[in-house]
């Protein structure tokens, strides 16, 4: 327990360790701590920014959605209008086409009727002539009675 040279040896040892700590240990560790502090602050700020951006984005999305809805409603309205128009057009076309067809059919019928009537008339004339010939034998002159026969045929 004597005070001896150890005292100075300890002083030097102490000084060396303090120097070592000051040179190699303290600065990097404290720097890392400061860096981490800055990093955390940065992260928190970024999170805050992200929060705000998210709120903004949500608002914007809401606006876009509203706009899209309005547009969609417009488009649907227009489409419905157009559909009604097309339907009306189609109806008119169909009606026209129908009446045209009916008219054509009617004309055809009329034409056929007339043709049949003409034919019938001719046949009846011939038939009447033949029948009269048979009844009257030679007494009837085709030329002389032509007018009568035709008059008759007309009445058919």
């Amino acid at each position: 327990m004597n005070i001896n040279l150890t005292l100075f040896a300890q002083m030097i040892t102490f000084a060396v360790f303090v120097w070592f700590c000051m040179k190699f240990i303290w600065p990097p560790i404290v720097k890392a701590l400061a860096d981490r502090k800055a990093k955390i602050a940065e992260g928190l700020a970024a999170a805050e920014r992200g929060h705000q951006e998210k709120a903004l984005g949500e608002q914007r999305a809401l606006e876009l959605m509203k706009e899209a809805k309005t547009k969609a409603a417009d488009i649907i309205g227009q489409a419905q209008k157009r559909a009604t128009e097309i339907l009306e057009e189609a109806k008119t076309d169909a009606r026209d086409e129908g009446s045209r067809l009916v008219a054509a059919a009617q004309a055809e019928i009329d034409r056929e009727t007339n043709r049949a009537r003409e034919e019938l008339r001719e046949r009846v004339t011939v038939l009447a002539m033949t029948a009269a010939e048979k009844i009257l034998q030679r007494e009837i002159n085709a030329d002389a009675h032509q007018a009568i026969v035709e008059d008759f045929a007309k009445q058919l």
């Binding site: 004597n2 005070i3 001896n4 150890t6 040896a9 300890q10 040892t13 360790f17 190699f24 560790i29």
Partner: peptide
């Protein structure tokens, strides 16, 4: 006065070295 306590020096330097090594390793 001109004597050295070898044990004191040895253990203090050993422990100081331990400290320096651990902290330097981390640093």
């Amino acid at each position: 006065f001109w004597a050295i306590n070898v044990d004191t020096l040895f253990f203090s330097i050993l422990l100081g070295w331990l400290f320096a090594r651990l902290f330097k390793g981390v640093a």
